Amino acid sequence: MVTGGGHGIGRASVRRLASEGASVTVADIDLAAAQLVAEEIRKAGGAAVAVGCDVRDRSSVETAVARAVDEFGRLDVLVNTAGGGGRHPEFADTGDEVWEDLIDLNLVGVVRCIRAALPHLRAAPGGGSVVTIGSVNGMATFGGEPYSAAKSGLQILTANLAAKYGPQGVRFNLVAPGTIRTRVWDDQADSLARLARLYPLGRVGEPDDVAAAVAFLASEDAAWITGVVLPVDGGILSVGPARIQS
């Protein structure tokens, strides 16, 4: 099950997992987009079902997880990509409602999804796996304090759950992307070009770059990996936030 599977990193993750033989539940608040992705997978000979899912709503999450299990008989992997940032005032002028909304979407939403999926992941025949999409914003000072604080919270959540549920066969890992070319950058080609020059590898990331890391951490190849944060960042953390902010 991939939350946020209708767009961007989520869509790329669905495609990559399906290409490696997974039966995928495409969960997204944008049901029409999820349906298009699921249809694409089925046309290519894979197995996929689309479900509406708002990670800010516990009932919606629980219904989506139940649908995934009903459709495929079990749930082995949960990929948490649903989230987002958005523009807001400077820190001193950012109200509580912005903090509450962004932390609910990016941190508590992940908690809701894991909590609903956990009984099924614990029962998975080969052990369950949770891969969550964080951000380099949760690892260094790139601004966007509410979003960054939520993403930082995902790291300690992942570490705690890895320690707690590893003995029960469930792995938890986090992928921390840098700048990725998704729809939030539509009509901002100049900004992406400027950012690309700041990355040691000379480009911004593509959704497929992140999807490859997701597929690895979800797979049996990563069977002895849990509790890690894997930056997929083109090297930006190696040169530091001062470079990207200058």
Rank of each mutant, 00 (worst) to 15 (best):
A211G: 01
T179A: 15
G138Y: 07
K151V: 11
N160W: 13
D187P: 15
L174T: 02
V131G: 00
A196E: 05
V136R: 04
A189C: 13
S152H: 10
G205A: 03
D187E: 07
G153I: 06
P177W: 07
V210M: 09
G134M: 05
A222L: 03
V131F: 03
F216H: 02
E206V: 05
G169R: 00
V214R: 02
A163I: 13
R194T: 15
N137D: 11
D208Y: 12
L217W: 03
A149I: 09
A218R: 01
Q155S: 11
A159G: 15
I133S: 00
P167H: 07
M139G: 05
Q188A: 13
V204E: 01
A211I: 04
V214I: 14
P167D: 06
W185F: 13
P167R: 01
L154Y: 01
A159T: 14
G166L: 07
L154Q: 05
N173S: 13
L192W: 11
G205Y: 03
S152Q: 14
V204Q: 08
K164P: 01
P207Y: 12
T141Q: 15
S135T: 09
E220V: 08
Q188P: 04
D186C: 13
D190C: 15
D190A: 12
I156F: 14
T132K: 01
A196M: 07
F172K: 00
T179K: 06
E145W: 10
A163F: 15
V130N: 02
L201E: 10
R197E: 11
A150D: 11
G143F: 10
Q168S: 14
V130K: 03
L174C: 02
V170I: 07
E145P: 11
S135V: 07
L201A: 08
A211M: 07
L192S: 14
L174E: 01
I156C: 10
R171S: 05
E145N: 10
F172N: 02
